[in-house]
Design a protein around this nucleic acid. Sequence first.
RNA 1: GCCGAAAUAGCUCAGUCGGUAGAGCGACUGAUUCGUAAUCAGUAGGUCGCAGGUUCGAUUCCUGUUUUCGGCACCA
Length: 635
Amino acid sequence: MSIQITFPDGNVKSFDAPVTGLAIAQGISPGLAKKAAVIKVDDALWDLNRPIVRDARISIITRDKPEALEVIRHDAAHVLAQAVQELFPGTQITFGPATEVGFYYDFARDTPFTEADLEAIENKMREIVKRDLPIKREVWDRDAALKHFEAAGESFKAEWIREGIAADEELSIYRQGDNWLDMCLGPHLPSTGKLGSAFKLIRVGGVYWRGDANNAQLQRIYGVCFATDDELKAYLKQMEEAEKRDHRKLGKQLDLFHQQEEAPGMVFWHPKGWAIWQAVEQYVRGVYKASGYQEVRGPQIMDVSLWKRSGHWDNYQENMFFTESEKRTYAVKPMNCPGHVQIYNAGLHSYRDLPIRYAEFGGCHRNEPSGALHGIMRVRAFTQDDGHIFCMPEQVEGEVTAFHQQAMQVYADFGFTDLAVKLALRPDKRLGTDEAWDRAENALRAALRAAGVAWEELPGEGAFYGPKIEYHLKDSIGRSWQVGTIQFDPMMPERLDASYIDESSQRVRPIMLHRAIVGSMERFIGILIEHHAGALPFWLSPVQAVVAPIVSDADGYASEVCELLKGEGLRAQADLRNEKINYKIREHALQKIPVILVVGRKEAEERTVTLRLRGIDAQETLPLDQALARLKAMR
RNA sequence: GCCGAAAUAGCUCAGUCGGUAGAGCGACUGAUUCGUAAUCAGUAGGUCGCAGGUUCGAUUCCUGUUUUCGGCACCA
């Protein structure tokens, strides 16, 4: 039988069926066959040696293409699995996909893998690559597969066949050489030799079977993998650089903050770190004012009955701190919203007053699981740039759109342009009817559409009271953190009895929007530090300028210059230590001070200063008033 | 919270196959006044995370615990 194969350029050629991708590639050129990784058949990626038996549009995917890279990484996972089973018989295989930079595979084994094991496993992987084992796809009968894996003691694979694969679904098995196989959707490279050498095992960690904490604990081995050795090398280099930007490291080096054993998950802000905080806070306060918020302040602890009414006690009591006095139990606030509702409820509101927007730099405590703590990014005591908008349902879309635009402007002002916008939809554990959730989710979608942004939807990730839009930023090693959010909440007004009087004098529930732009001040400052590698923009730098005299004869003049700068509201210091100018320059450069003003005898006599700006070796000497004007312009 | 690892001077780290520890930087003191990324010399500084156990003797071995790190789960 002959089939028609359509090539990417539109050419059509007849082949005797079955024909494989590899054969087609060889027909074009041996070079292409060598570079080929997989073949795209219509819109699906297939193995090169999988027989094509029908008319199809095809394109050969060479190993330098992104789609091929995913296959290479997936292959690496399988080679890893085989290596582990050869080295550690009795270890069960489960799943092993490609990731953004490599791959992982999850194993069930009683004995933990050690760092030394990783080295041995990686060597075994290279050996399997060298053996160049053919990789072949087979379609198995479901019962046969079940029987095989059960007989092999692979209970996790067997469970997956029973519970994870639909009865009518095709079950594919990939054989790697004669003695090893795995159940897998594929596609894969034609042989292990095609994997190449650009991979490296990097760490091992514990995970739960099927991502559920109630299930068995597995061990996940992570690797990184690229198409070429140069790319791997570049990646490892980049990671090394990224580690230098770690906010925990820079926080210490730049003397911004510290944390200690007696206060896990909490931050001791040092003067320089607090200066950054103040700069951020004053900026955000300006945003509050500009966008119609009134700043308020609620109490830090409130009777637990209030938290029972709000629903927080039911959902989060495990993660709340409590304190007691005179036989009453108080909850240390984990959120500011119930407090804001009390402020709202203290007065009577007409529909004409809405929207009412309250804002607070609200300090919250949440007893986060110990394993979740991470520097100042995930803490147990934090401050939100929190705000709550009480409005009518028809005002929601406009408020959300306005918020979005304001938030994007704020991120841009701090130097962030690469934001991920996500829409978190109804979770399993929730309040309210499905109809209410439909309305809420659609209102947020409409607002995002109106704002003209692309967003990702996250089913099941919403808050218990409503859906939310989330804004995410990445840290130096690629971990994604939520910063801003706006959340739709029809539940809290109901539970805490908030209302307004509508046009026909009826008491009606407002909608409440919870919103934050920087989110947690702690987390945001952590991300700021990493994003700028500690070299914060001038307006955020804790010390904006250092005046450094060359000889002690210039000390008086240096102090005068420093006082002048401070008088203009700049954060300046004079470095009058008995050290050489080289020493001072080096130290302040390492401290990432944006401006160093060097003054020697000459400057003191002529009333000039020599400016040295961060990142620029060239110097410029200019009169004091001009230098001052220059610095003021940098704010 | 779960799996794994780690914790030594202010910081970065070395070390002790069980005999109570060392470097560099920093700090302090003195000398030096030196024009754009480290001047020289000297001094001080540590219950080796905490609590038990084994031992003649523990920072080292064992157990527990706290915190941190990596991963997962969680993240109102």
